[in-house]
Nucleic acid binder design. Structure first.
Length: 221
DNA sequence: CCAGACGTTGTT
DNA sequence: GTCTGG
DNA sequence: CCAGACGTTGTT
DNA sequence: GTCTGG
């Protein structure tokens, strides 16, 4: 799973670092860099879509299916989408073959379950938070699907995204040891492949070597 | 033909 | 919107 | 994960 | 105790 991210980079710096255009319009005021963004806060987050892969946009992290008329975050959880399930289920993003996006992050958080014994000799499970980053803390991509959705609150069509998840690689299985999942982490090259349609959702089920070889660092914090 | 589903799994 | 199950 | 709820109403 | 909602 992946519900918690870090994105502390101002949008202009982020654009410069990644060779992107800054978001257009007034929406850029909606994004606040935060060291910890909880998916359940339904935040605006910096994203890219296949419509124009060099144009950074702000989207809502919580895919809202196009047939929903009102904001609805109760019927189903759309923060994540499991890559193995997308074909076997009717999907919330029925345009999953077309609507590729990425979420730009500095890192994401996972909690490791650690067995311990308390003072009374009782077994407990404590949770240690880990920040997962790329070398030098450089920003990277999480693969997403998006849906266009008319947001009544601002009377505009917005992008809503769901982060793809897959079985954990060795490092992530060690940290996220309860569910053993990981988000689909994309380096710049694979982000381009994803946004240009050279990668499909199903490819992320495979590609074990790529996911094993990611130069990730996990920091306790 | 209509009704119902459509998703995931978690902290400070 | 689109598919599935009855 | 934690906080909060935890119920019923009615025909062929 | 167990489920639901966020």
């Amino acid at each position: 799973m992946c519900y918690h991210i870090k994105q502390t980079t101002a949008l202009d710096i982020l654009a410069e670092k990644m060779g992107l255009n800054e978001p257009k319009g007034n929406y850029q005021d909606l994004f606040e860099p935060e060291s910890h963004i909880n998916g359940y806060s339904f935040s605006w987050v910096p994203i890219l879509t296949n419509e124009n892969p060099r144009q950074m946009k702000l989207g809502k992290w919580w895919l809202m299916p196009s047939w929903e008329k009102e904001w609805n975050n109760k019927l189903r959880n759309t923060l994540n989408t499991r890559v193995e399930k997308i074909e076997e289920h009717r999907s919330i993003c029925y345009k999953y073959q077309e609507n590729h996006a990425t979420l730009l992050v500095d890192g994401f958080y996972e909690w490791q379950h650690v067995a311990s014994v308390n003072k009374k000799g009782k077994k407990e499970i404590t949770k240690e938070r880990h920040l997962i980053i790329m070398p030098k803390g450089d920003p990277f991509h999480l693969a997403c699907l998006y849906a266009d959705w008319f947001f009544p609150e601002i009377e505009a069509i917005i992008k809503t995204v769901s982060v793809l998840t897959r079985p954990a690689n060795t490092l992530m299985a060690h940290i996220h040891n309860s569910k053993k999942r990981m988000p689909v982490i994309l380096d710049n090259e694979n982000a381009n492949n994803w946004l240009s349609g050279h990668l499909e959702v199903n490819d992320f089920i495979e590609m074990d070597d790529y996911f094993e070889s990611l130069p990730l660092d996990a920091l306790k914090r």
